[in-house]
Amino acid sequence: MVPGQHMPLFEVFIRSRRGLDHKHVGSLHAETHQQALEYARDCYTRRSEGVSIWVVRSGDIVASQEEDAGEFFDPMDDKPYRHATHYRLPPEVDNM
């Protein structure tokens, strides 16, 4: 390791309660996955914020860019009929 160089970056996901999804909470530097787990525990769950942690190397995450969101999500905008509210039903049967 080059002196002064940081260890690899990991993204941290925490499940706050049994039954919920893991949620992204932040990132940290660590040398190995195991170490990242321990750092994440020390760093992100000091007040029992979680019951389970996932760590993933940041470099392994492929993300779409928000600047491209217009084009990327474009096909979703013009389909109002995907929403339940698009179908107007008389009040007598509107509870479905």
Binding site: R18, G19, D21, R82, H86, Y87, L89, M96
Partner: peptide
């Protein structure tokens, strides 16, 4: 857990399915 969370996601999408069907029938 994974089944329950899948169901939550699915239920959000189902309401439109039933409403469009009833609209056709009506």
């Amino acid at each position: 857990g994974p089944y329950a969370r899948g169901m939550v996601r699915i239920c959000k999408e189902e309401s439109f399915h039933q409403r469009q069907g009833y609209e056709v029938i009506l």
